[in-house]
Design a protein around this nucleic acid. Structure first.
Lengths: 162, 162
DNA sequence: TCTCAGAGATTGAGCGAGCAGCAATTGATT
DNA sequence: AATCAATTGCTGCTCGCTCAATCTCTGAGA
């Protein structure tokens, strides 16, 4: 608190300290920290990234369902090129296989390998442990329920708007 | 729903459909989408990234306060090297200045330029607009209040744990 | 006073994602 | 049957961040 005051300081300080700015910063920071925590834990214990786990979750959700790279890109909020290279790495690691779609020769379907499912089960346990500890535990059951409901509304609003 | 069933499918499906996994996925997805939305809007209208805005927010919060790169790194959840290059770009863009600390010759203090404060005020308005629309509006006042309180608890829990 | 572990900032190498542009494929229109 | 816009996945390029190594500087203990 010793520098010489600059013109515009007060207005800037007011904007920087607004309620909205602080609250939103909190959301981003919490989510970032949580994701980083999970990512490093997954890399350490299972050798996969958080993004890869998200892919495995999507692929295992409905066994037998055909999932294309486009589906994955949409669900993970990635571009098609990002998805291409992500699946490249996962195929390289033996977690998934690429299978040409019988119905449409433009699309490639992605399937888990048995090794991918093994890794997934282990990773899901680690994931659950971290989430339980840092996401569920700090909240009361009621707060947790309300929080997830609120997030759901935000997400659908974002999706609808485009 | 036509592929041949694989061993381990049921266990994997159960893990992939667990309550915890879905809820946490929602948190990450909402935060990611929201941040992307703000980032592209800021780039379009003000020519800065969301991360740069976070820096400006931090620098303007308490006028006259000395803020080092290390402080910024901690507050933004970045590494020191990431911060170095971020400040490089912001200095290049004329948004901030680097000033050696008089008290400790290892540390570099970061200060906003008057141009930086001008851009900040404009960016803060854009920021507020997007946040208002996609974060505050979908929620009732009560839900919003509870949501931010819950995020605060999660954040402090994450910070304390290390 | 000297030493030395540790902190802050920087640099080089590498990774993961986006953007723009491409070829192959599809489905609808004429 | 021929054409053409739209879709899917892939590739070259760039950006922003991390990790590891390095340098300078600080502060505490022998």
């Amino acid at each position: 608190m010793n520098a010489t005051p600059q013109p515009g300081d007060e207005a800037a300080a007011q904007a920087a300290n607004s309620r909205l700015v602080r609250d939103f910063g909190l959301l981003i920071k919490s989510a970032t920290r949580l994701e980083q925590r999970i990512d490093t834990e997954l890399r350490r214990t299972c050798g996969i990234s958080h993004t890869m786990l998200e892919v495995l979750i999507r692929l295992c959700r409905r066994p037998g369902e055909e999932v294309s790279q486009r589906d994955l890109a949409d669900d993970l909020t990635l571009t098609s090129s990002g998805t291409t290279r992500l699946i490249d790495r996962m195929e390289e690691a033996g977690l998934v296989d690429r299978v040409p779609s019988p119905a449409d020769r433009r699309v490639t379907l992605v399937e888990t390998t048995s090794h991918g499912r093994t890794v997934f089960l282990r990773a899901a346990a680690v994931h659950a442990e971290v989430v339980e500890k840092h996401f569920v535990e700090p909240l009361s059951a009621d707060d947790y329920q309300r929080l997830t409901a609120a997030l759901g509304r935000i997400d659908t609003a974002l999706r609808d708007d485009v």
